[in-house]
Simulated assay, not measured.
Amino acid sequence: MRLELHSHPATPPAQPFAVWANAEASAAFGESATLNLWFGVGAPADRFRIAAPSDDPQRRDGLWRTTCFEAFLRDEAGAAYREWNFAPSGDWAAYDFSARREGMAQAAVASAPYLRVEDNLTWWGLGATIAIPSERRFALGLTAVIEEADGTISYWALAHGGEKPDFHDPACFVARLP
């Protein structure tokens, strides 16, 4: 399913461009399933500050300070959620929260996400594949922090809930994964 992301009104891009995402959960294999995410940016990659691919991608904090894509998965049965961060360099992060911005901890992740970047000259994108529990239903928030070459940073989400960008706002968790 293609989902349009919207820039927060307080942080518009310097020049208009589109941001979209696709999310598809695979069939379950025992207790796990795979979630395939694709984020697209409708402008040439050279308009943006994009970290070069790393030969040794790692788990890193602070990826949201520049171009980064994120997925928030909240179990529909509660307030706890997981935040995933994906950088074009291949670096990533995962955090668990017990409630909105509460109880933040490094998420126990069995394997790093599989990340890939594609540049098609007129648009570019990042793909991420992660393992998710198969027995749960999730509310999903898909977001992006996009830094342009001139330093302009815009914050994109499926929906925004407040006067300032806050991807942890429950208003951002608008998609559903069966």
Rank of each mutant, 00 (worst) to 15 (best):
L63M: 14
R65V: 05
A79H: 14
G90R: 01
R136Q: 04
L73Y: 04
T129P: 03
W64K: 08
G90Q: 06
A175Q: 12
A87L: 03
A99C: 06
R82S: 01
A139Y: 09
F48A: 02
A80S: 15
D46F: 14
L142V: 06
A131F: 06
R59K: 12
L126N: 00
F29E: 14
E70P: 03
F86W: 07
P133E: 11
G62I: 09
L73R: 05
P57F: 13
G103L: 03
G78H: 13
E163F: 12
Q58R: 11
A52E: 07
N85S: 06
A128C: 07
P57K: 11
E70F: 04
E163R: 15
R65T: 10
E31S: 15
G141V: 02
A159S: 13
P165K: 09
A128H: 00
G141Y: 07
F69L: 11
P53C: 05
F39H: 02
R49P: 00
A108C: 12
M104Q: 15
N36R: 14
R60C: 14
I132T: 09
L126D: 00
W123S: 10
R49G: 02
G42I: 10
D46V: 04
L35I: 14
D75A: 15
L142C: 10
L140P: 00
L121K: 10
Q106Y: 03
G103E: 00
S54Y: 11
D96S: 14
S154A: 01
A159Q: 12
T34H: 09
F69K: 08
G40S: 10
P88E: 11
